[in-house]
Each structure stands twice: as structure tokens, then as C-alpha cells.
Design a protein around this nucleic acid. Structure first.
Lengths: 197, 197, 197, 197
DNA sequence: CATGAATGAGGCTTCATTCAT
DNA sequence: CATGAATGAAGCCTCATTCAT
């Protein structure tokens, strides 16, 4: 009885994973706004209708991908603490920008949601705690680096500065991915410098 | 003959202006991605087909609006120099963020282009000199503020940080435009601080 | 063995009842064409698949509801006879129209079936005896009211006239349910008058 | 100038006619609710998108067909007056029922709209005058037949009775179109009788 | 050169029905 | 026999772009 239910839930989780993974894959390949429900379904090996058993609509799926990304960055910071016992502002910037370089859909979606006008309350209800957690981590980084004033505000400023850097240079014409990574990391280092002062 | 030609060109310029102005107006009123070619045509008082005599496609028109915005920021900095004889990093940040607050389509479009994948070479050919001019100005601001090292890189970093700030908080759920302006200006001040160190 | 079988059948009957009742409830709440199989299942507390153990498809379920309605009208006429020993044409019209006012899905479904093109023979096999019984009753009403000629035809005519009245005025724009009831009853009275001549 | 405009309007009218005619043709062939926008477009020899240049949505197209039917009935009555100088209740019923037999989509649509719940105000704004005109005509028929009391109400009652007859017997299982026509005309005659009393 | 009607591919989503468990 | 997740065809409609006038 319970075993069956567990199996069901497991399967559900697996299929959801399938869909999300397919979505992420496609988003990574090109502009996420161009990716269609049908494509995701095909890539995930499910039918279009199935997506809607897991997500009320495409925006919900987008949100999910976005939140996964945000969580992953948090996890990377956690990991840094675990491994090194600390995380400098420099290191934080590096981690975030490296992550963004490899997961462009994150700030693509950030833009998507941020520029979409008022988000449905349900959306922001899901988004808020996860973003808060990320900012908490960043605030901690500041504090442990000796910054005492306006740490929350600085966390906001730094986080969005790094995103802006990516948006501004992510696909700068005439540069390939490797160059862009270098450039954005260089910019990140400068920004880190400034924020460490 | 030549007079006629001039007249023709004049008319052409006027119509182009009409279209651009209509587009800007509509973009300002809402999310630019929701604005349709027909709407722009209607607002401009021309037919949809006419838009395509002036722009190969919608993206070209977007680009034009984008470049106008970039130029306007440059002009604002110029103005500051004319009026005050100087422009501090603080003042620069203030000007840019204020402008962005009132012209959201600028960074909306920046996102649009940056996230669209490789830009057509023609696009970047138009974009480059104008962006370069803006960054030149910002570099000058740095230099005159006593910053000597990595001024170009810092210009890049600052510019994109400010944009990122706007994208991240432009439509923060639950805040009205006035609050957002205040918040982003506060963040801009912090960023300015950091970059002035 | 037999006891078990009986139990099984009992259970089957109960579940069928559950489904039908749920369907009727939902049909009563809104336009029956908008009610989905899933909704019915959910309301009945069964799974969507279960519906198909009892009905080959949705149309069969619709038919069942339709027939229940037809039977209920018959029963109301029977009741009238039991209580009053007679049933005038006027009274008949009143009963039918009152019933239709409270069970709009009846003539909604009548329309549905009648307009669907050729009904499957199985459908009409189920429909025929029940409609015949209703018309028998109405014929009897005519006969006992002293009408002798063409009673069957008149029964047909009266029955469908009353339905038509409802369809034409059921949701007359700008009138509420109470007004519609009044209006249709007034029309029914007129029709009754004509048929009593 | 004006000539061109006139031509344009002419063309517009022609294409609209094309669409409507295609729609009517398809409606006549089967259940109008099953007819899709694509089918209509294909039959009319236009693209799906074109339909939406003429109608805001499918319901508007349905409404147009409906109104055309209503007008045609009115015109048939007018014609009868022109030809015969009068129109008896019998004749009226005959005309309506004959028309309905050949244009089943009329009462299909009547049902569709009537059962759809509150009609959009724009819909009823278009519908009202045309239905009123038809009822005016029918009222005149009553008056000229010597009926003096409740003529409006009787007009309502008669009109909807005839529709109901069609809905109830239009596709009565096991009868072909010719039989149904005969049967409904017979019913119409009876109804006419009653209303003439 | 402007017009603007027509195009038609393609988007999202729904829902009756099936079928493995 | 019930379940309910998955299916996938099919619906409506939008909108950038084209092209005959």
C-alpha cells in the first residue's frame, strides 16, 4: 500500500526531473524564450499534455528552473564554507559568475521574471524564500569579511551587479564563450575589489 | 531635382522619427516584449508595412530604440559636464539609474539583445561605436576621479552593475515605482561608493 | 458466492449512482457542455477511469442523465394523478416548465443529442421507451381533457413547444432566474390555452 | 481615391461572404459545434488568420450566421406579404418550419447562444434588434388573424414552440430528412391550429 | 513608396480516453 | 475491478512579415 504510493511518488519525481532536465538542456542550447512546450516534451520523452500535469503553465516551469538555479548557487556557497571554512567576497563573486557562465538561463530567467511586471503572488511566494536564503548567505560573506554597515543593501547591490555584468557581456558580439568567461571573471574581480574596500 | 530629393529624404526622416517615437512611447507604457508591430504602426499613424521600409525587422527597430537610449545617457553626461564642469562617480551612477528608472525599455532591450544569442554582425556594427562612446565617457569619469588603473574594465563593471541593479529590482513585487526608484538609487550610491574607493 | 455477487452488484450500483449524482450536480451548476469528465470523477470521489467502467463514453453518461430527467417528469405527472386524480393540460405544462426551470440540463441535453447528428442505434434504443412513456402520459392528459383527434401528434407538439420555450428564454439576456421562470410559465400558460381549445 | 476605397470595401464584403458561406456550408453538413476555424478557412479558400480579420472570434462568426438566418426568415415573411398581401398563422408556421428544416444551424445556434449563459452585451446588442424585428412580424401576423390579446406574448410562445419542435424532432433516430420534414410540418400545423383558436 | 489585407506557422493549453499497475 | 498518470490530437488564436495595388 504505502510501498505503492512511495513508488508512485518516486516515479512522479523522476518524470518531473525528466521534464526539468529537458527544459534546462534546451534553455542552455539557446534563448530560453524560444523554447516551446512541445520541444521540452519531446526532449523529455513525454507528451505535451504531461508537462501540464506537473506545471500549471510554462511560466511555472520557468520558475522552477529559476529556483533550482538559485538553490544551486546557494549550495555552491555552502560547499565553499564546508571545504574552506570561509568564503571571501572575491570567492563569492567568482562562484556566482562562474555559475552564471555555465547556466545562462539563470539570469535570462531573472530578466524574464523581473521585467514581466507584477509577478503573480504565488510566483513571488515561491521565489522569495529562496532569494532570501541566497542573500542571507551573501550578507554573511560580507560580515565575515569585516564589512559591518549596510550589509543587506550591499548584498543586494553585489548580487545584482554580478548579474548585470553577465547580462551586459554574456553574448558580447565577436567573443566566444571562453573569452566572455574570462572577461566577466575579470569584471567580477574588479567588482569584488570595490565591494571589499 | 535635388530639392525634391532633399524633401523626400526629409519626409523619410520624419516618418522614421514617427515610428521610433511611437515605439518608445509604447515601450514606456508597458513591457516592450508585448508591444506588437501593428500597435507601433497604429500609434505612429502609418501602416504596418511601412515599418518594414525603415527596418528590416522588428529587432532592427528595437536596436534603434536601444541606441537612442544609449545616446541619451551619453548626452546627459555631456550635459553634466557642461553645467558643472565635472561629473563624479556618484553623480554618474545617479544619472544612469535615474534614466533607467524612467526608461525601463533600455535595459529591457539590453537583456533582449544580450540574451538573444549571437547578434548579427550588422547589429553589433551599429551598437559598438555608441556603446564605446558611453564607456569612453564613463572611463573619463573614473580618470577624473583619480582612478588610474583598469579604468576601462572598471567602466564596464560599473555600467553593467547599475544595469543589473535595475533588472533585479525594477519590478520588485510589492513595491511601487517610487519605492523602487528610491531603492535603486540607494543601491547605486553604495555601488558608487565602492567604485570610488 | 451469490451473496458476494449481490454485494458486488450492489457496490456497482452505488458507484454508478455516485457518478450520476455528481454529474447532475455539476450540470445543474453550470452549462453542462463545460463539465469535464475529471470534474465529475472528482465530485463523485472516483477516478476518471472508473467512469469508463460504467459508461462507454461521456455521451452515454449524458444519455443516462437525460433519461433520468425524462423519468422524473413522468414521475411528477404520475404524482399529480395520484394526488389529484387528474391532470389538466394547464397543470401538465406548468409541471414540465417548472421542472425545466430547475433542471436546465434536461433540454440542454435534448439539444445536445438532437443536434449531434444521427444518434447511435443503441442510444435511441434506450431513449425510445422512456420518451414513449412520457408521451403516453401526455396523450392521456389530452384525452382526459376531451381532446380526441390527433392526440399523439398533439402530445409531440406540446412537449416540444414547451422545451422550445425554455431554450428560447432560458437565459434571456438581462433577466434573472426568477424573471425567466415567471416569463416561461406565462408562455406555458398561453401554450396550454391554445392546446386546450 | 474613392473608387479604390470602394473597391476595397467591395472586396472585403466579398471575402466576408466567402467565409460566411463556407461556414454555413459546413454547418449544414454536420453539427456546427464540430466545425473548426481551420476547416472554415480551408473551405473558404482563405487562411485561418483571415477569419480573425473579419471576426473577433468564432462566436462572433456564429452570431453572424445566426443573424443572417433570422433575417432570412423575416425576409421570407415579407415576401409572403408581398406576394399574397397577407400571411396566416398557418402559413407563418409553415414558412418557419420549412426554413428550419433546410437550415438546421439556425436553431443549433439558437440553442448554442441561449444555453451559453449570459451573452456578452455586445452579442445581445446585435441580436436584439433582429430578433425584435422577427417578433414584430409575427405579432403582426397574429393581429391580422384577429388575435388581439397578448399578441407579443403569443408571438414569443409560437416562435419558440416551432423551434422546440425542430430541436425535439430534427434528427429523430430512425427517420430520414424527408420524414422529419413531414413530421415537423404536421406538428407545425397542429401548433398553428392551436394558436389560431 | 505607402498601404494594409492576407498569410500561416506555430504558440499554449485542454480533455476524453486508455492502460499498466 | 479501480486507479489515475499519461496520452496526443485538436482547438483557438496571435502576429511578424509579405506583396499586390
Amino acid at each position: 500500500m504505502t510501498a505503492l504510493k512511495l513508488l508512485r511518488e518516486k516515479e512522479r519525481e523522476v518524470r518531473r526531473e525528466l521534464i526539468i532536465t529537458a527544459a534546462q538542456k534546451l534553455f542552455a542550447e539557446s534563448d530560453f524564450r524560444k523554447v516551446t512546450a512541445r520541444e521540452i516534451a519531446r526532449t523529455a520523452g513525454v507528451s505535451p499534455g504531461t508537462i501540464y500535469r506537473y506545471y500549471k503553465n510554462m511560466d511555472e516551469l520557468f520558475l522552477d528552473v529559476f529556483l533550482i538555479h538559485a538553490n544551486e548557487i546557494s549550495r555552491l556557497i555552502d560547499l565553499e564554507y564546508e571545504r574552506e571554512g570561509q568564503c571571501s567576497i572575491h570567492r563569492y563573486c567568482e562562484i556566482q559568475v562562474e555559475y552564471l557562465n555555465e547556466n545562462m538561463s539563470f539570469y535570462q530567467m531573472m530578466s524574464h521574471f523581473m521585467l514581466s511586471g507584477a509577478l503573480p503572488s504565488e510566483t513571488s511566494k515561491k521565489m522569495d524564500p529562496i532569494m532570501r536564503r541566497l542573500l542571507d548567505l551573501l550578507e554573511r560573506v560580507f560580515k565575515e569579511s569585516g564589512v559591518e554597515k549596510d550589509t543587506r543593501l550591499r548584498a543586494h547591490a553585489l548580487f545584482s551587479s554580478l548579474n548585470g555584468t553577465m547580462i551586459s557581456y554574456a553574448r558580447y558580439p565577436g567573443r566566444d564563450l571562453e573569452e566572455i568567461k574570462k572577461h566577466t571573471l575579470r569584471l567580477a574581480a574588479i567588482i569584488a575589489d570595490q565591494f571589499s574596500a
